[in-house]
């Protein structure tokens, strides 16, 4: 990628936008805010395109910046409103991102959203990158700036929690 042109930007950087958006949304839980974050990341890529030429994984870099901006936003939100865990939980449940056929299914989907939201931040991020975006351990370690063992440990713990709680949901929810 020698001297990124607008064309290169459109064909190689812009298509990452949805991954960035989903990642930001999984953290800030507000569509307009997530959209602002993605926009900011893309503008940063454009402004620093000279430095980014040497980068071998631009996508991981973008995801990392998305994560940092999202966490900053969360932090400032907590500072201004000091909203409790429950409030964040509610927002995610009201967020109808998953239109589903049966009302029953919809309910369970909400439960899953809530369940994933209640995971520790790092586990939540690892689950998102692995099970939704299909990233390798190496890519996840680059995005989250932790070593591969940490990635595996977080993924294992997250899936364990999900498995246990899914059985609970099932026990009195779905069937």
């Amino acid at each position: 990628m020698v001297n990124m042109s607008l064309e290169t930007f459109k064909t190689q950087v812009l298509p990452i936008k949805n991954k960035l958006y989903r990642f930001a949304l999984s953290m800030v839980k507000s569509e307009p805010e997530a959209q602002d974050i993605v926009q900011e990341v893309l503008i940063r890529v454009w402004n620093r395109r000279k430095d980014l030429e040497q980068l071998d994984n631009l996508e991981a870099w973008c995801m990392r910046i998305t994560r940092n901006l999202s966490l900053d936003k969360l932090k400032s939100k907590h500072m201004s409103k000091t909203s409790g865990m429950e409030e964040g939980f509610d927002v995610s449940q009201n967020n109808e991102m998953t239109p589903y056929r049966s009302a029953e299914m919809k309910d369970t989907m909400k439960n899953i959203t809530g369940l994933i939201s209640s995971l520790p931040e790092k586990q939540k991020q690892v689950i998102h990158l692995r099970d939704i975006e299909g990233y390798s351990y190496k890519e996840i370690s680059e995005v989250l700036e932790i070593d591969m063992n940490q990635v595996k440990v977080n993924l294992f713990r997250a899936r364990k929690t999900l498995k246990e709680n899914l059985l609970n949901i099932n026990a009195y929810g779905l069937q």
Binding site: K17, Q35, M97, T98, Y100, M105, T108, I132, Q175
Partner: peptide, 27 residues
């Protein structure tokens, strides 16, 4: 069934996209 719910959730999440106006705005 419970595992299916989880995997369907992942599949649904993967479909979450930005709208078409976003590209124009950024460009």
């Amino acid at each position: 069934k419970s595992a299916q719910v989880l995997f369907r959730y992942f599949n649904e999440q993967r479909k979450v996209d930005l709208d078409g106006l976003f590209d124009e705005k950024v460009i």
